[in-house]
Amino acid sequence: MLFDTHLHIVDRRALTYPWLAGAGELNRDSLYEDYARDAMRCGISNVLHMEVDVAPERIEDETNYVREVSRHPDCLVRGVVAACRPEDDGFAAYLERSLGDPFVKGFRRVLHVAPDDTATRPLFRENIKRLSATRMTFDLCVFPHQFETILALVDQCPDVRFILDHCANPPIKSGMSDVWRKGITEFARRSNVTAKISGVIAYGDLENWSVDSLRPFVEHTIEGFGWDRVVWGSDWPVCTLGGGLTPWVAATHALTAGCTPEERDKLYQANAKRIWSI
Rank of each mutant, 00 (worst) to 15 (best):
R37P: 00
I150K: 02
R181N: 02
K273R: 15
H72Y: 10
W209G: 04
V104R: 06
P115L: 08
R189Y: 13
N27M: 02
T252S: 14
N46F: 05
D228R: 15
T260C: 08
F143M: 15
N27Y: 07
T252N: 05
D34R: 15
Q146H: 12
W19S: 04
E223L: 15
I201F: 09
L31N: 12
P56V: 07
R181Q: 03
E57S: 15
S132D: 06
V230G: 00
V52C: 14
H6W: 09
L153V: 11
P216N: 08
L245R: 00
A202P: 05
P247L: 12
L131Q: 03
E87Y: 07
E87I: 03
K129W: 07
Y35C: 10
A92F: 09
V104F: 04
I128Y: 11
E60I: 08
I275R: 05
W276Q: 03
K105N: 06
H6Q: 14
H6L: 10
D265A: 14
T63N: 15
A202K: 14
T118W: 03
D11I: 00
C84T: 12
F138C: 05
R130S: 07
V200W: 06
D235C: 06
T134I: 05
V154E: 08
P158A: 14
P144H: 06
G242L: 10
H6R: 10
L26R: 11
A93D: 13
I59G: 04
V10D: 04
H220V: 08
V10M: 06
A14P: 01
H6C: 04
S45F: 11
C84E: 05
N27P: 02
H49K: 11
R215D: 10
R181E: 01
S277C: 09
D139T: 10
R37C: 07
A36I: 15
L140C: 09
E126A: 15
E25Y: 14
T246M: 12
N192H: 13
V249D: 00
V160S: 10
V66E: 01
D159N: 11
Y65Q: 04
E96K: 04
S210Q: 00
I9M: 13
V10A: 02
